[in-house]
Simulated scan of single mutants.
Amino acid sequence: MANQPKKNASGNRAQEKAATAARRDARREKAAVQAARLKAEAAARKRKDRLIVGGVVAVVLALIIGGVWFQISRNSGPVETPANASSEYGFSVGEDDAPTEVEIIADYLCPACASFEGATDEQLAAAVEAGKAKVTYFPVVILDDYGDYSARAANAVGVVLDTAGPEVALEFNRNLFAEQPAEAGNKPDDDWLIDLAVESGAKEADIREGIEDSQFERWIKEGTQEAQRRGMKGTPTIFIDGKMVDPAAAATQIAAL
């Protein structure tokens, strides 16, 4: 009977060890279950992130492809030419059978073009009125290093020509040179061009969309390329009866018409 407490103590310790081991195994199992769950959640998040990134990439690619396709579509096919254009890339005033033909290639930001226009416009108008000359104007862009004003102004002339005819386009041409901004610094916006076109005789409802959307951008661009093929090195470039003439000499010839 004296040894019975020792047996009970040994049994208790064995039970405690077993219980401790069971709790340890339970914790390990719980930890393993949690780890497995976390791993599964992480994998699910990773798959979701890949799907999101893939979707974003797909959208971006679609936008890029769509933009490229739009540009290709816009720059392919026949060039839209303004109604009332009297040549492939210009517009004319005067009779076709006039004895003298004057062609003026100009950039609306070019100070020398404005000077030539100011020096010869009245004389050309008188020669046209008298039936002595036919004058053709070719808007081009060579001063795009100073921003997009040259292109926007030239396009605006195309829109006015398309909707209001050559006489209004000529008046707009005059006013653009009279109100010509400096090459450097800020340039007038599309609303300014629209207001000036309306002052020249165009209707805002007819021209706003074409000016804001650069309707005749390709016409101007290809007209500039054609002028370069004809020998244009700068502006103004003047042809009288098909022969390129120095602007000063051209002004003298025009004064004699």
Results as ranks from 00 to 15, higher is better:
138 F>V: 05
3 N>A: 08
237 T>N: 06
168 V>T: 15
142 I>E: 02
5 P>K: 04
26 A>N: 01
121 D>S: 07
234 G>S: 14
187 K>Q: 12
165 G>A: 01
223 G>T: 04
185 G>E: 10
200 S>Y: 14
75 N>S: 00
248 A>C: 00
125 A>V: 13
38 L>W: 15
151 A>D: 13
223 G>A: 01
24 R>S: 14
123 Q>S: 12
130 A>D: 06
171 E>R: 04
13 R>D: 02
208 R>D: 01
176 L>D: 09
39 K>Y: 14
54 G>C: 00
191 D>Q: 12
197 A>I: 09
239 F>W: 14
78 P>L: 14
246 D>E: 15
49 D>W: 14
192 W>H: 10
155 N>V: 07
4 Q>H: 05
6 K>I: 00
150 S>Q: 10
9 A>E: 10
64 I>R: 05
67 G>A: 11
87 S>H: 03
166 P>F: 03
247 P>C: 13
222 E>R: 03
94 G>L: 03
129 E>N: 06
40 A>C: 07
122 E>N: 09
2 A>Y: 07
68 V>N: 05
72 I>L: 12
199 E>R: 06
212 E>M: 12
119 A>K: 02
200 S>T: 15
44 A>L: 07
220 I>E: 10
2 A>D: 13
156 A>Y: 07
72 I>C: 02
78 P>W: 13
52 I>R: 07
88 E>G: 08
191 D>R: 02
186 N>L: 11
103 E>C: 12
57 V>E: 03
52 I>G: 08
118 G>W: 01
155 N>T: 02
35 A>H: 04
10 S>F: 14
183 E>M: 15
64 I>D: 08
106 A>F: 13
39 K>D: 14
191 D>W: 02
244 M>N: 14
61 L>I: 15
229 R>V: 15
58 A>S: 09
100 T>I: 11
29 E>T: 05
157 V>G: 04
140 V>K: 06
12 N>F: 06
195 D>M: 15
228 Q>L: 15
7 K>L: 10
72 I>R: 08
245 V>P: 05
140 V>E: 09
121 D>N: 03
56 V>C: 12
119 A>P: 00
114 A>T: 11
